[in-house]
Design a protein around this nucleic acid. Structure first.
Lengths: 190, 190
DNA sequence: GTCTATAGACGGATAGAC
DNA sequence: GTCTATCCGTCTATAGAC
């Protein structure tokens, strides 16, 4: 019981540190300090740093995917465009306001050791597929594979790029989402 | 003379390593090995690791900005939309095929020490201004500050996001640029 | 479960020979 | 200009006491 609580605290603190300072500069000493422990104690809960890091990042993807799916479920009769916009809003909201797990995943993924990346392949692929299906539905059956792939990359780029400039005290998620709709999804597939 | 050559070699190797492994995991020992030197010798050319890193990243921004400006100068009578697309193409091309300096800048900036980020503020601001003026010209004088800012962020996000998926052997820069135009800049400002 | 203590590797940086 | 040699700090990880 107590182990589960401590484990959760460690994961949450790790997510915050990873987002801020990156994979390599998150030291287990600093992490332990932040949860009122000593570095060695962390090894009771995790076999290694990479095990811990993998877990943080895995929680991140699963969190956005779950949030987006449940957001979509709330509006079962939405049009393809409305569904994309719902996904955009929930993704942004989770990324920017709710979850260090998501933002640490996005920021750290490029620099994390290869074995960690490999262990995350499946969860990432699953979330990718969700977006591809949303975009396929929006562009319609006559769209090419590249149409779908490239629109997905433009969208994800615009969403995840917020990590480098969005200031929750100045900017509004719904405002930015509205611009994305105006700029990217005027009204009908072209 | 010889110093200048060695210095350039070091910078180029550092850019490649930074792009691949990030700021913290680029060790001066590894860097030195790659240019057939010993770690201590690097200090003849640079006062510190952060000095070297700052220089790599400074070269990066200045390189894209110069490339984009010269690309724009080639078509003086282009429309605002054509000018944005010229900038998009050159930015992508520089980022993806020509310069480890640019990609290392984009990838490492979030995790580099604060003093390094501060020393890069001016060059980054200068490149930002270029994009803002291009977008202002495209959206027209009746567009709000937020219209301009947000479109800029969508664009830059879509461009720099390529770093995480673009495969030069599979994908084409002009192809992706064309999609950006279709998706984002249909024909007229809205 | 968490601690102390420490092993063992590797990091940036410096001094002085050549 | 580049090298050798080294200082000193920090890192992940482990062993064993409590």
């Amino acid at each position: 019981m107590k182990a589960e609580i401590a484990r959760s605290e460690i994961l949450a603190a790790a997510a915050g540190m990873m987002r801020q300072v990156g994979y390599s500069d998150m030291s287990l000493r600093d992490l332990a300090t932040q949860v009122n422990m000593k570095a060695g104690s962390l090894y009771y809960h995790f076999a290694s740093k990479d095990e811990l890091v993998t877990e943080v990042m895995r929680i991140g993807v699963e969190a956005v995917e779950a949030a987006v799916r449940s957001g979509l479920d709330e509006h079962p009769s939405a049009s393809p465009q409305e569904r994309i916009m719902a996904a955009v809003t929930v993704h942004l909201d989770t990324l920017l306001k709710r979850s260090d797990f998501v933002s640490s995943h996005i920021r750290c993924y490029p620099f994390v050791p290869v074995p960690v990346r490999e262990r995350l392949r499946e969860v990432r692929r699953s979330y990718d597929q969700l977006w591809l299906s949303l975009i396929r539905a929006y562009l319609g059956p006559e769209a090419s594979t590249d149409d779908v792939r490239y629109l997905r990359q433009v969208l994800i780029g615009a969403l995840n790029g917020t990590l480098e400039w969005f200031n929750p005290e100045r900017d509004s998620v719904t405002e930015y989402a509205r611009r994305i709709e105006t700029f990217l999804l005027p009204q009908k597939p072209r």
